[in-house]
C-alpha cells in the first residue's frame, strides 16, 4: 500500500510543469524515503531528476517499494484539474496497474477523485557520479528565466562563464550578439541575491543548448532561487529546491566547443 498526502498540492503541479515537455513518461519510484523520478529527453541530451522526500508530505505510507509508470501528458492533464491550494493525495496498491489521485479543496467543500492508468516503462536508471564542481552560482530563478529567454533570440547556444565574483551569459547569432553579466551581491540575505563560489578561482566557461535551458526554466515557480553548477567537460547542473525536502535537478550535456 502506498499513500502520500501533500498539503501544498501546487508543488506537484509545478514540478510536472518542469518535467512534462522534457520527458514523455517516467517511472515514479515510491519507497519509504519518498518519491523519485529520473528520465532523459528523447534526444538524450538532458537528464531530469525529481526528488520528493517523505517529509514533504504530511502523511506518507509506503509498505513496499512501488513503481508508478506515468504518462506525463496524462498526469499533467489530471493535475490541471486541481486548484493551486488543493491538498493532493496519491494512492496505489502494492503492485499497481493504476494510481488514484484525490484532490481536496482547502476548505474541504469539494473533493475530486481521479484514476490514472499506469504503463510499463522500460527505462534505464543512470548513475550520477559525485563531482567536485569548479563553480557554483545561485541566482534568482526569475532572473535566470529571463536571461535564457532573452539570449535565445540570438542563437541556439548560450555560453555560461564564471569568473571571480561574476557570472556571464552570452549568445551570438546572425542578428548580433548579447552578453549579460551578473555580479555577486554584497551581504544581502534575500532571494534577490547572486552568489558565486569558485574552487581555486579558475575561470570556467561552457556552451549549452538554449532550448534545453528554456525547458528547465519551466520549473521557475518551484523556487525563488536556482543553483547552477559547472565543471569543465561535465554536464551543467541546474537545481530548483523544493523547500527543504525535495528538488528538481537537470543535468545538461555541454555542446562541443568549436
Amino acid at each position: 500500500m502506498f499513500e502520500a498526502r501533500l498539503l501544498q498540492g501546487s508543488i506537484l503541479k509545478k514540478a510536472l510543469e518542469g518535467i512534462r515537455e522534457l520527458i514523455t513518461s517516467g517511472n515514479w519510484e515510491c519507497s519509504s524515503a519518498g518519491i523519485s523520478m529520473q528520465g532523459m529527453d528523447p534526444s538524450h541530451v538532458a537528464l531530469t531528476v525529481l526528488m520528493l522526500q517523505n517529509d514533504l508530505f504530511d502523511q506518507f505510507r509506503c509498505d513496499r517499494n512501488v513503481t508508478l509508470g506515468l504518462n506525463h501528458a496524462t498526469f499533467s492533464k489530471i493535475l490541471k484539474c486541481a486548484a493551486n491550494d488543493d491538498i493532493i493525495t496519491l494512492k496505489a496498491e502494492d503492485q499497481p496497474d493504476e494510481c488514484n489521485l484525490l484532490f481536496q479543496s482547502a476548505n474541504d467543500d469539494k473533493t475530486s477523485d481521479f484514476i490514472i492508468k499506469l504503463t510499463d516503462i522500460d527505462q534505464e536508471t543512470l548513475g550520477i557520479p559525485d563531482t567536485e564542481y569548479a563553480a557554483t552560482v545561485k541566482v534568482p530563478s526569475v532572473e535566470f528565466q529571463r536571461i535564457c529567454r532573452d539570449l535565445s533570440q540570438f542563437g541556439d547556444t548560450i555560453i555560461i562563464s564564471v569568473k571571480k565574483g561574476c557570472v556571464e551569459f552570452s549568445g551570438t547569432g546572425e542578428i548580433g550578439s548579447a552578453k549579460i553579466a551578473l555580479k555577486e551581491s554584497g551581504n544581502v540575505d534575500d532571494d534577490e541575491k547572486v552568489s558565486v563560489e569558485m574552487d581555486k578561482d579558475t575561470p570556467c566557461s561552457l556552451s549549452f543548448a538554449s532550448r534545453y535551458l528554456n525547458y528547465f526554466t519551466k520549473a521557475t515557480s518551484l523556487s525563488d532561487t536556482v543553483t547552477l553548477q559547472l565543471c569543465p567537460e561535465h554536464p551543467l547542473v541546474v537545481s530548483y529546491d523544493i523547500g527543504d525536502n525535495g528538488s528538481l535537478k537537470y543535468y545538461l550535456a555541454p555542446k562541443i566547443e568549436e
Binding site: M40, V45, L47, E124, G127, A209, P235, A253, I256
Partner: peptide, 14 residues
C-alpha cells in the same frame, strides 16, 4: 543535434 554531446557519455547505467 550537431555539436551536441549526449548525457549518456557522462552518466552510465550502474
Amino acid at each position: 543535434m550537431p555539436g551536441q554531446r549526449s548525457i549518456t557519455s557522462f552518466f552510465s547505467s550502474p
